[in-house]
Amino acid sequence: MVRDVDVRSIEDGVARMCMETNVLAPDDLIKALKKGMAEEEPGTAREIFRVLLENLEVARNENLPICQDTGMTVVFLDVGQDVHLAGGDVSEAVNEGVRRGYRQGYLRKSVVADPLRRMNTGDNTPAVIHFSVVPGDKVRVTVVPKGFGSENMSAIRMLKPTEGYEGIKRFVIDTIKNAGANPCPPIVVGIGVGGTFEKAALMSKEALTRPLGKPSGDENTRRMENDLLKEINKLGIGPQGLGGRVTALSVAVNTYPTHIAGLPVALNICCHVYRHASIEI
């Protein structure tokens, strides 16, 4: 049986999620920031956590975006193979949702039409859309407004297979050390290990849709996440790069089989405004 899903319901969902994710901080983030604040000594680091928590409250009460960089909108569409998308072009529906959400929500339009000529499109479109076809008759829509202070400090490296976990660790630590204050720590780190060049990058972005602090289902990966978080927080970069114990709130790693000759690793950084939402239609 094929189930019809009207693309307008996707448009509505995208519009709503654009507005909600940018204004309303999710509980997992508030919890993580409170935990971070408790780990810091009194002084600048703890004060910054207090300011970040107060900012989340002001955003909610004043209906203002948490951060002025309301991102380029990344949308994951997991479409059930028994779904028929009806009523128009699904990509256009996503973009219309972004257009509406960013206009009605008074969110910043941060997208330029051409990477070199740099004329603002005026409505934050186009979104970056990742489609995948999955079993079932539902459509899962995930919206991730991605700020660029942190996106700019992300990196990918094609390691040699024999470099193993030590190579991954070195790459991760170097990248975050080099990023310093720029990605607005305390950060959330998404890592993709394996696959190909683009698969690793995509996995690192997908890792940034995982609920904060939720560990990987795989034991080895979980160990890697814990160890990397510990190593990153030893750097002492701290909130806003002004020193402290909490540089990262969480590390999420996704893995995939890879080629005998390669060990791709991609690291995508998200700032402390960890925004994403999903709906199932």
């Binding site: 970040l52 107060e54 900012n55 004043e62 948490i66 951060c67 700032c271």
Partner: peptide, 13 residues
Amino acid sequence: FAAVGGAGALLAQ
């Protein structure tokens, strides 16, 4: 001067 990055709603006040 450094202002707190990501505290845009608060700073707008």
